[in-house]
């Protein structure tokens, strides 16, 4: 034992250390920068915010922290409105992603095994085209004289083009389309590992298929539902491209507001405090989930 150069504990520490180092360098450090800017004041200079720590005279240093941005975010209904708007759009999109994604994942998981890989490929294939181009393509489909309207008019179902582009509906279509694969993949991973003998046993004991699904398949696939849901919900809250390209002027989302603060108002501190608040809001469900899981394990 003495002669071992690396104790098992140290080896484990090293392996765990790598992701911690990664998180520290690419998440914590940038976040601290954002936090620092959020406590500063905007000025017309390069960079356009005041440094928190300034040298007044040689040797004499003054530190000024400005909480005014957070105060403004709290007091002004616009920012709260945008945050709730984003959370609402995100929640509804996540729900629809799960509604469409679950049957897809289920079908792939139950397909003959030689079909699964090609079917999964079809889910992943859109990623080979740039995200931006795929969202742009929806403009061509949804616009007044676009593919969808022209088809509907040609088929005689409608005689006036439907106004879909630049409405909330277009934003939902764009988001659900773009994020669907992120739901299907984790759901597939849990569903394909499901022990089918459980279903057989339930059927032997006279359980109807629908009840089998509700009492066995759905609860056992819950980790996939939660993972997929998080993968959609969290990035969609901060989504900027889809509401900007497909949404109308009244699509109030925090990502667009952040753009305005950062670019139009040149107020980097306020934009940074928006980002910091958003992060805290998104961490809450995570912490709650952890808490919930730990209690489950303890029982």
């Amino acid at each position: 034992m003495k002669g071992l150069p690396l104790s098992p504990l140290r080896g484990r520490g090293l392996i765990i250390g790598v992701p911690w180092f990664w998180l520290g360098l690419f998440f914590l450090l940038p976040f601290l920068f954002v936090l620092k800017i959020s406590l500063s004041e905007p000025v017309l200079a390069q960079p356009p915010y005041m440094d928190l720590i300034r040298e007044v005279e040689d040797g004499l240093v003054s530190i000024s922290v400005n909480f005014g941005n957070y105060l403004l975010l709290w007091e002004d209904p616009l920012y709260r409105g945008a945050l709730f708007g984003s959370l609402k759009i995100s929640a509804i999109s996540t729900l629809f992603c799960l509604l469409f994604g679950y049957p897809m994942a289920y079908a792939i998981a139950r397909a003959p095994s030689h079909w699964r890989l090609p079917l999964l490929m079809l889910i992943i294939l859109p990623f080979w085209t740039s995200f931006l181009i795929r969202v742009y393509a929806w403009i061509g489909i949804l616009k007044g004289n676009g593919l969808l309207n022209n088809f509907l008019i040609w088929s005689g179902l409608i005689d006036q083009p439907l106004e879909i582009l630049h409405t909330p509906l277009a934003v939902y279509i764009g988001i659900v389309y773009s994020y669907l694969p992120f739901v299907v993949l984790p759901l597939y991973a849990t569903l394909v590992r499901l022990d089918l003998t459980l279903l057989e046993a339930a059927a032997d004991l006279g359980c109807r298929p629908w009840k089998q699904f509700l009492t066995i398949t759905l609860p056992l696939s819950l980790p996939g539902v939660i993972a997929g849901g998080m993968l959609v919900f969290i990035p969609v809250v901060g989504e900027f491209v889809i509401p900007d390209l497909l949404g109308g002027p009244d699509t109030l989302m925090i990502g667009k507001l952040m753009w305005t603060e950062f670019f139009s108002n040149k107020d980097w501190p306020l934009a940074s405090s928006l980002a910091a608040v958003l992060l805290v809001v998104l961490i809450i469900p995570f912490v709650a989930l952890r808490h919930f899981e730990q209690r489950e394990e303890a029982v």
């Binding site: 017309l44 616009l78 945008a82 009244d250 139009s264 108002n265």
Partner: peptide, 19 residues
């Protein structure tokens, strides 16, 4: 001025979002 721009952009955000 910077302050006037801020007032304008605020008015602008309100207009666009219908707030």
């Amino acid at each position: 001025s910077e302050r006037q721009i801020r007032v304008m952009n605020r008015a602008w955000t309100r207009i666009k979002t219908g707030q």
